[in-house]
């Protein structure tokens, strides 16, 4: 937590909040990764054990959880590319703000492609 008396380097707005979101999404994705490798490891136990656990991923509640997971990954991926452009392009830092809005635009487009398909798979039909 910021403890410096004279305030801290980051003072809100797009730069700081994108940094916060990058950190929060990365943290969440890491813990999903630990769970996901472990549940996949059940293929070494038996087909029944794996199918029982992976079946819970297909329930409506977990289906919504997957929406959150994919949203976190998509933001982290696009914002990660933005971070690299900020670091490596000569004019990167000058355009960091406009690049965040591009990231958010691409995020909306990607989720618009993913959501209908996924929600149909989870909630539609049988």
């Amino acid at each position: 937590m910021p403890t410096a008396q004279g305030g801290t380097l980051y003072r809100g707005r797009e730069g700081m909040w994108s940094w916060v979101a990058h950190r929060v999404t990365g943290f969440a994705i890491f813990f999903f990764l630990l769970v996901h490798v472990t549940d996949t490891a059940l293929v070494r136990v038996s087909p029944e054990a794996y199918n029982a656990v992976i079946g819970t991923y297909q329930t409506p509640i977990m289906g919504l959880g997957e929406v959150g997971l994919v949203a976190a990954i998509v933001f982290h991926a696009f914002n990660g590319i933005r971070i690299m452009l900020v670091d490596f392009l000569a004019n990167g830092p000058r355009y960091q703000r406009v690049m965040l809005w591009i990231v958010l635009g691409l995020f909306v487009v990607t989720m618009a492609g993913f959501l209908p398909r996924h929600l149909m798979n989870v909630f539609g039909g049988h």
Binding site: P47, I54, G55, Y57, E66, F114, H118, N121, V122
Partner: peptide, 16 residues
């Protein structure tokens, strides 16, 4: 998640 039935199609046979 996108191809075919997405998450609904994942089972032991899919991984196999």
């Amino acid at each position: 998640l996108m191809v075919g039935e997405g998450v609904k199609a994942i089972d032991f046979a899919f991984v196999g």
